[in-house]
């Protein structure tokens, strides 16, 4: 273990605590929607992507079928495509290792590992994903097992945690004043597209706002 990896682990811990609460509400909602506790837990273990899991769950729970659920989840995760492209030049190993290292991409790790000059610290990225994975899985287990007893988790305001979590990352980025106009543009593009596209697409399309970086 090197220093960057350990630093990543430390930076990931607050996000893993917040992730625990989000995945707790996912586990509870999943069993209330007809998942077995095992299904909820396996999904968090092999997908580990909050917004995609909620999207896929809500479609299947509404009787929409597996394929639409998979596509909705894939669209929510489409932003990881953009993040992977941004990360790629910072991964020096062979293609198989790079593909495995890419699995460490989750929003907080990716944002924290970015050095602000277009490069990423891959060890820090992987380090900060470790506690978040543990938090995500353990929250799901507690939520899935306690699910029926918890009732409607919206009562506890747990749905406010996910956006606040990302707001924390965004505010750290906004300390650089050059980020502010493009962040505002990305937000405006995403909101404008919400009524017209499936969920997830607005976030991916908002990435075009970063093209103003071509001028520098």
């Amino acid at each position: 273990m090197n220093e960057a990896f350990r630093q990543g682990v430390r930076l990931g811990i607050p996000f893993s605590l917040a992730g625990f609460l989000i995945s707790l509400s996912f586990g509870a909602l999943a069993v209330q929607s007809g998942f077995t506790p095992l299904q909820a837990i396996v999904m968090s273990a092999v997908v580990h992507a909050g917004s995609a899991q909620f999207a896929g769950l809500s479609i299947v729970a509404a009787g929409g079928g597996a394929l639409p659920g998979i596509l909705a989840g894939g669209l929510m995760n489409a932003r990881f495509l953009a993040m992977g492209i941004a990360l790629a030049p910072s991964l020096p190993a062979g293609p198989l290792v790079r593909g495995l290292q890419g699995q460490a991409i989750v929003d907080p790790s990716w944002a924290l590992a970015n050095r602000g000059d277009g490069t990423f610290d891959r060890w820090q990225l992987m380090g900060s994903t470790v506690p978040q994975y543990v938090g995500w899985l353990s929250g799901t287990i507690v939520g899935a097992l306690a699910g029926e007893a918890l009732g409607d988790t919206d009562r506890f305001g747990l749905d406010a945690i996910f956006p606040t979590f990302f707001l924390g990352l965004l505010i750290a980025e906004m300390r650089d004043p050059r980020s502010r106009p493009v962040a505002a543009a990305g937000a405006a593009i995403a909101l404008a597209l919400v009524p017209f596209t499936p969920p997830g697409v607005p976030i991916l399309v908002a990435a075009v706002a970063a093209l103003v970086g071509l001028r520098r």
């Binding site: 929003d107 990302f166 965004l170 980020s179 505002a184 990305g186 995403a190 909101l191 976030i203 970063a210």
Partner: peptide, 14 residues
């Protein structure tokens, strides 16, 4: 370099 603020802002508002 500008992708983190853009993607995070879009994720928060949506």
């Amino acid at each position: 370099a500008l992708m983190p603020p853009v993607l995070l802002a879009a994720l928060v508002v949506t």
